[in-house]
């Protein structure tokens, strides 16, 4: 039961149904990719997993290691080990990265985290991301470039060490160097006690984070699944052929 399981999930926002019966399993120890055209509902799924109150879940369930997290608040889900790297990380002026990250780590571990312990963790993460220590005293994402924001998400991922991570289009807006850095961060997390769902529109990121499985989402449901080769096929042929196939099957 060590897995993130999404079971027949239906969800809406402002009366419009976005997810229409999503079924997806990410076992711990694996990295899966979630691909699909714009508007398929990929980011919605990411936000709903994290507990975004903007959305209403109408049906189905989300299970973390066999336990439903549907009724849990976003912070409770995070403390259970779920992490969402935001597509658009939020700017929070007045809150420094260092202060925030230490509070988050303390919340996750449920105990005080000493300065020395904290710094040891953060330093390792910074080195891996090739990032300057100076960022820690900056306000959370304030005035950051797109690349800096994404790097900051991965920094948090590395420090908080969640059991499951959902990366929502972490590659969007990144140049190739930034993309490699982000991939390095995610790959460093890979191992038997970490599972990830990498949401992406393009195959590019998957050259650097090679997924164990690929799921394709269209119109609010998973329409195809396969190995890494599926991503390459999508890259070559686009999404239209798949759409046609789904139509025919319907």
């Amino acid at each position: 039961m060590n897995q993130l399981e999404i079971r027949d999930l239906w969800a809406s926002i402002d009366g419009e149904t976005i997810l229409k019966g999503v079924n997806l399993v990410v076992p711990k120890g694996q990295v899966h990719a979630l691909m699909g055209p714009n508007g398929a509902g990929k980011s919605t799924l990411g936000k709903i997993l994290a507990g975004d109150p903007e959305y209403t879940v109408e049906q189905g369930d989300i299970l973390l290691d066999g336990e439903s997290i549907l009724d849990l608040s976003p912070d409770e889900r995070a403390r259970k080990g779920l992490f969402l790297a935001f597509q658009y990380p939020v700017e929070v002026p007045g809150v420094t990265i260092a202060n925030f990250l230490r509070l988050a780590l303390q919340a996750k571990l449920g105990r005080e985290v000493g300065v020395a312990e904290f710094w040891a963790k953060v330093k390792r993460a910074l080195e891996l991301l090739d990032w300057d220590e100076g960022y820690l005293s900056r306000y959370l994402n304030e005035g950051f470039s797109g690349g800096e924001k994404k790097r900051n998400e991965i920094l948090q991922l590395l420090v908080l060490e969640p059991a499951y991570a959902v990366l929502d289009e972490t590659d969007s807006g990144l140049d190739i160097d930034a993309l490699k850095v982000v991939a390095r961060g995610v790959n460093a997390m890979r191992g038997p006690s970490f599972g990830a769902l990498v949401i992406t529109h393009y195959q590019r990121l998957l050259n650097y984070i090679v997924p164990d499985r690929v799921h394709v989402m269209m119109d609010g449901r998973i329409v195809a699944e396969g190995g890494p080769e599926l991503a390459l096929e999508l890259e070559a042929k686009g999404y239209e052929w798949l759409r046609e196939r789904v139509k025919e099957e319907a």
Partner: peptide
């Protein structure tokens, strides 16, 4: 902002406290 802070494990009350302090910072 609250959702973002909460999504990292900060309880709502702590997140709110952080945002008040940030506002006055």
């Amino acid at each position: 902002q609250l959702f973002y802070l909460q999504s990292r494990g900060l309880p709502r009350s702590l997140a709110q406290e952080l945002l008040v302090k940030a506002h006055l910072a």
